[in-house]
């Protein structure tokens, strides 16, 4: 564990808590894309399939449970909570998740780290699911970014949520650089490239977020 990874995990945790705070306290999910939340639930479900088989540390298991629990409860709130669901603007959230999930699944089947396991079936399945979750996480924010461009006035909590979500992966990139130089054989092109793509997708959001912060004006993305 290094400071970059810890900072990344804490930023990721904070993004989830900001979103839960918004939904739970003001009972509103205005401006939040349900599609992105559902994609994130799929990302965590496919990423942490081995949560009970491969134990790494109490921290690791606890964080996995938090991410799984929070992502699924956010989806539950937005779909079924009688007050929250009213503030969900489905006409603005029209991105079709399957056009993201299918290519990621095919890509995961084609390009995944060579597996050195004996029983090809289970471990291969787990590896493909893990790789799928990496590719899917890289693009999961797209429905949310599209929705932000359509929603004229982005409220602060939503802006902070997206900013923290982007920042966490940027911190992970620093973590990978650090681990590359401090650990031998730490080379994971798939993780690195998907993490880079993911962070680059936030580039224009970061730009406008920084501008709104610097000029102290409301955050607005150009249509």
């Amino acid at each position: 564990m290094n400071i970059f990874r810890l900072a990344g995990d804490m930023t990721h945790l904070l993004s989830v808590l900001v979103l839960l705070l918004k939904i739970h306290t003001i009972k509103s999910c205005a401006g939040i894309s349900l599609k992105t939340q559902e994609l994130y639930a799929v990302v965590f479900a496919t990423r942490y399939l081995d949560i009970f088989t491969s134990y790494i540390s109490p921290y690791n298991t606890m964080m996995k449970l938090i991410f799984l629990g929070s992502s699924f409860s956010i989806v539950w709130y937005m779909r079924y909570h009688k007050i929250v669901r009213r503030s969900y603007d489905k006409d603005q959230d029209t991105f079709r998740p399957y056009i993201l999930m299918l290519p990621c699944l095919i890509l995961a089947l084609l390009i995944n780290e060579k597996f050195t396991f004996k029983e090809i079936s289970t471990s291969f399945f787990l590896f493909v699911m893990w790789t799928f979750s990496l590719y899917l996480e890289a693009v999961a924010i797209l429905p949310q970014l599209v929705m932000l461009q359509r929603t004229r006035n982005i409220d602060n909590l939503t802006g902070q949520y997206v900013f923290l979500l982007g920042a966490y992966r940027a911190l992970y990139i620093l973590n990978w650089i650090y681990r590359y130089f401090t650990e031998e054989h730490f080379v994971h092109w798939i993780t690195w490239i998907s993490g880079l793509v993911q962070t680059l997708l936030y580039a224009d959001f970061f730009y406008y977020y920084f501008q709104s912060w610097k000029n102290n004006v409301k955050l607005q993305l150009p249509a």
């Binding site: 995990d9 990721h12 491969s54 690791n60 780290e113 681990r179 054989h185 730490f186 994971h188 993780t191």
Partner: peptide, 10 residues
């Protein structure tokens, strides 16, 4: 089994 080093991350 040696944990896949990238898989020790979240």
């Amino acid at each position: 089994v040696k944990q896949e080093s990238a898989k020790d991350e979240l």
